[in-house]
């Protein structure tokens, strides 16, 4: 009895969704290890990060937006636009650094514009970011209808560069960048006033305003963060694919939203953890590797499993919210 009380005190209910996400990750990964000999290797874990580094970065940006109670449907399209801008500017002979700055700048600017429209014209985030998604995809095709492969040598070298960890596990630089983004975002969300205001706006915008917090800055700011993360995610994706293409990352916004929700962040805003979103991405990645390990199972099972997980988690969240109410 007393141990029960103790454990419930140590894991307050607010961590329950994240704990559940982590449990699902452990279970799916465990299932893989039991079923396939080579599954439980360090490299498979490393590959989860390698194959999903861009998704992690996008999920970071989306978490900011969803924490305020908003949504950003443009992330996949902005990522695609970034691959396109990167590929075309690099091929045009721009120095890689300038190219990278251009990409990140345009992503953040697009996010800023969407945020301003959402906040100042009170148009629903859903519609504004949907328009942003169309705009970004359209701009891709305006640059080129075809896929543009990246030939710039320094960029290719960076893409193929590998970090070898003890145990012969190799990681790409993308993973390092993604993890750095996660750390930076954790810092911003938990240790700066901007980050806490993001949570505050999601909890109750009117209360936050009465408390004298800079709510407008937070509401617009999250879309800038998301735009920046989408652009950076797009850069990582172009490192992964070594090309720019308007049809890259189609539907990725849905995967990202699913990862964030599975990671325990409430779409109503105010509740959730960044690490949850990261674990959410890892769950999606594990499901994908499981299905590819199985071989006989078709890839569309991934979608069905993700849908089922999504359902399980929203019902779980719903029950928690009801219990609190």
């Amino acid at each position: 009895m007393s141990t029960l009380a103790l454990s419930s005190a140590r894991f307050p209910q607010r961590f329950l969704p994240v704990v559940a996400t982590f449990a699902v990750f452990v279970v799916t990964f465990g299932a893989g290890s039991v079923r396939y000999e080579n599954f439980a290797s360090g490299q498979v874990v490393a590959n989860l990060f390698v194959d999903n580094s861009f998704l992690i970065v996008l999920a970071v940006g989306m978490t900011f937006v969803i924490l305020t109670g908003g949504i950003d449907l443009s992330v996949g399209a902005v990522a695609a636009l970034s691959t396109m801008i990167a590929a075309s500017t690099l091929n045009a002979g721009w120095p890689p650094l300038l190219s990278v700055i251009t990409v990140l700048g345009s992503g953040a600017t697009l996010g800023l514009l969407m945020g301003l429209v959402i906040h100042h014209f009170e148009v629903q985030p859903f519609i504004v970011t949907l328009a942003g998604m169309f705009l970004a995809r359209g701009l891709c095709f305006l640059i080129s209808v075809e896929s543009v492969s990246i030939t710039e040598p320094a960029f290719r070298e960076f893409a193929s560069g590998a970090i070898t960890l003890p145990g012969d596990i190799t990681l790409t630089y993308s993973v390092v960048i993604a993890l750095a983004v996660v750390l930076a975002a954790l810092y911003v969300l938990h240790l700066t006033r901007f980050g806490r205001t993001v949570y505050a706006v999601g909890g109750s915008e009117s209360s936050a305003r009465l408390m004298g917090l800079a709510t407008s800055r937070a509401k617009v700011g999250v879309y800038v963060v998301s735009g920046f993360c989408s652009a950076l995610g797009g850069l990582l994706f172009s490192l992964y694919m070594l090309s720019g293409y308007g049809l890259h990352a189609v539907g990725m916004e849905l995967d990202v939203i699913a990862a964030v929700v599975i990671g325990g962040t409430l779409l109503a805003g105010g509740t959730g953890y960044l690490l949850g979103s990261v674990v959410g991405v890892l769950v999606l990645g594990t499901v994908q590797s499981l299905i590819s390990f199985e071989g006989t199972l078709s890839s569309w099972w991934t979608k069905i499993v993700i849908g089922a997980l999504l359902l399980a988690f929203i019902v779980l969240q719903r029950l928690i919210v009801r219990r609190q109410a």
Partner: peptide, 12 residues
Amino acid sequence: TVYQEVNLLPNL
């Protein structure tokens, strides 16, 4: 000011 309905943030 302490408002009538507690105008604080339950999620923080």
